[in-house]
Design a protein around this nucleic acid. Structure first.
Lengths: 207, 207
DNA sequence: TTACACAACTGCAAATTTGCGGCCCTGCAC
DNA sequence: GTGCAGGGCCGCAAATTTGCAGTTGTGTAA
């Protein structure tokens, strides 16, 4: 058997998916406001309380949003001294994909967002949290970096990383629009790569 | 919804049934000795440890045996002063049915027992436990009963109830043979009733 | 406006499941 | 016959789920 995940972890993943799936499906049927957390929990065959063990809000469940976090691997590989634009762009996409339930619910989620624009607000808030998380990483890297000491002389590290993440975020948003109609992981990454290339070409022209 | 059982109780029942079902099915495929508790647990989608939270032995799981117990209702309704033979007979059947997973696995269990006679020994031990349980109830009733005071003068209450349960057990065994080929609850009870009638007729003839 | 039902969401204790180490026994290779 | 792997089974701590009793905010009927 595929022993990658312990039984405990596998069940946790299944429950998460069951809740997200139930939330999205019921929302598609009746709209976000006519669906109760109780109904979602019942559909997923868990208690109403367990629902809130997995999702902070009903909308998070509908959209399949977790608190963003960064894999240890990505964190140790992250290095502010080279290719920062690439790294931050890819980091942003990675975090979104790994914490937005990159699995099956993909198209369900797309449909829900399309159908009920009021949920977009939540999605935006989520992206802001992702960016905040990445900003913190960049800030920490810059603070500890000799290469950035000069710039950091004149600007706060927070402001520097804010600017960097702002720029690096453009490819991500661009890529998400591009891949919106064929939202597989490969498509996302392909779109991201071409978006980064585009950014590289555009940047020199505008300064 | 049918809110008879709490979610907790419903899931407990489902897990019990899943384990029993897995145990019986796997046994039918390979025989009791070629099936491991690990395999049963895996098939039922719970951990190996959880298996032993539900069943004391592998054979209990295969046969779907729980520790026998008596419903509160039956206990309060039980009265040693009248119709004792009927009551004990029915009590025996009730306990067996309520603690032997009277649900779906019925025919599966039958098949398993038929196929692997070595399991019968366990079943016999189980019936002995049931009888012990019922004997305790009868003993307690007799001890507290004025009507039985006379007889109890000359025999220990344990011996009296042992004899009673022995007699009352005959209809149960008779009924189980009768209904072996159509083992629904209704059949059991019909067979039991006619067995009790038969006993009533036979008793006067042999004393 | 007040009263009130309803639904989101939380804190906490009790019940359940899981992982893990360990004990004991048995069959089987060496 | 000795060692050793495999499987049944148990104790215990940690993780998870459940039930329950709130608190809060909002729509809405009186």
């Amino acid at each position: 058997m595929s022993q990658l995940l312990s039984l405990r972890d596998r069940k946790r993943t299944e429950t998460w998916a069951a809740l997200h799936d139930a939330a999205a499906r019921l929302t598609l049927e009746s709209g976000p406001d006519r669906v109760t957390t109780d109904a979602i929990a019942a559909q997923a065959n868990v208690s109403a309380r367990t629902f809130f063990n997995y999702f902070g809000t009903k909308e998070d469940a509908i959209l399949g949003l977790q608190d963003p976090s960064i894999d240890e691997n990505w964190l140790t590989a992250f290095n502010v001294e080279t290719n920062l634009l690439d790294q931050v762009s890819r980091l942003l996409v990675h975090v979104v994909h790994s914490t937005e339930g990159g699995g099956d619910g993909e198209s369900l989620r797309m449909e829900v967002v399309q159908q009920f624009p009021q949920l977009r607000q939540r999605r935006v808030a989520y992206f802001l949290k992702v960016e905040q998380l990445v900003r913190d990483v960049v800030t920490e890297g810059i603070t500890a970096s000799a290469k950035w000491a000069d710039v950091a002389q004149h600007h706060r590290a927070e402001d520097i990383s804010r600017m960097i993440v702002l720029i690096a975020g453009a490819p991500m948003r661009y890529a998400m629009q591009e891949s919106a109609h064929a939202p597989t992981l490969d498509n996302q990454f392909a779109a991201l790569s071409s978006a980064i290339s585009l950014l590289r070409e555009v940047l020199p022209e505008i300064q």
